[in-house]
């Protein structure tokens, strides 16, 4: 029973990181209807940049975190400018954007490889000094709690921003109908660029939290979350922010519970994706997805 509870708690931690990653992923999809396949690479660079700031520049993680997040956001602007904006008015923009985002992902990964080498790296041992709490047979570290708090703060912050701010409303307007948004006087290209900034900043933040949580990072760490992130946003409903949060948690929980129940990690991914498959059979548009209405 305690093992079960422990795994539930672990699922919450890793699920919140998945959710944070997926929120950024789905945000761009919601606005542009294009998957930004370089999102996992930004996740990697976010984590590695924070590591560099701590290890080489000698900052504390609390200083490094916001700076690395900002840099990840700037990478998002670069992505928009180089990989998406030039293709925006082409008839095949959905497909060509997908391809060019893969190209950017490869370039980002190469940069990571060149700078950090092909081995696993980790934050210095004294980056965080977690307190360990034990109660009712469950172990929780302060690091884990901080990760969940940061992830949820960012996700709630994004939700509130989209809901209430002027720019957030403009983002939703562009997502719903770009032509109409233009006619309202919204500077659509600027809103899209800003969306990339937010999306990538959140992706980078997820990368840092991931690196802290697993205490291991490598230039290909994005690969491990790439498909999961995609599964999470499909699960939650494409383009849905609350869906991505719920999907992240559901995915994290199903992973750790599989390990808890079967006793091995062999089936972890298989079961998680089987859950995805089953949910989509029941709800083809995802947990919180709405069937999107389109103009004929």
């Amino acid at each position: 029973m305690n093992l079960f509870l422990q795994q539930l708690v672990n699922g919450l931690f890793i699920g919140s990181v998945y959710g944070l990653f997926a929120v950024g992923y789905t945000l761009v999809f919601g606005v542009l209807d294009i998957l930004n396949l370089a999102h996992p690479a930004v996740f990697t660079l976010g984590g590695l940049t924070a590591l560099w700031l701590v290890e080489t520049a000698g900052l504390t993680i609390f200083q490094a975190f916001p700076i690395a997040v900002l840099i990840a956001g700037l990478l998002g602007l670069l992505l928009d400018r180089v990989a998406f904006a030039p293709l925006r008015h082409r008839a095949d923009t959905y497909f060509s954007g997908l391809i060019s985002s893969i190209a950017m992902a490869i370039m980002f990964e190469s940069v990571a490889l060149g700078v950090f080498g092909a081995h696993t790296v980790r934050f210095p041992a004294n980056t965080v000094t977690p307190t360990i709490w034990r109660f009712a047979g469950i172990t929780v570290t302060s690091l884990q709690v901080e990760i969940v708090l940061v992830a949820f703060l960012l996700m709630v912050g994004l939700t509130q921003f989209l809901k209430h701010s002027r720019t957030g409303k403009a983002i939703r307007a562009v997502a719903e109908n770009e032509r109409m948004a233009r006619l309202l006087g919204i500077h659509v290209d600027r809103i899209i660029a800003f969306t990339f900034f937010i999306s990538s900043a959140l992706g980078g933040a997820a990368g840092i939290l991931f690196g802290l949580y697993f205490d291991a990072m490598s230039p290909d760490m994005g690969r491990s979350i790439e498909l999961k992130g995609l599964a999470v946003i499909v699960l939650g409903g494409m383009g849905s922010i609350p869906g991505a949060i719920a999907g992240g948690l559901a995915f994290g929980l199903s992973e750790v519970l599989t390990v808890a129940i079967t006793g091995t990690s062999n089936l972890r991914d298989a079961v998680a994706f089987a859950v995805l498959f089953a949910i989509l059979l029941l709800r083809p548009s995802g947990i919180l997805g709405r069937s999107r209405m389109r103009e004929a």
């Binding site: 409303k169 719903e176 109908n177 006619l183």
Partner: peptide
Amino acid sequence: LVLAGMSVRENLELGAYR
């Protein structure tokens, strides 16, 4: 052409975006 998924109030607010 209204923004169907957004509220009536939000549609009006966006009218005054500039």
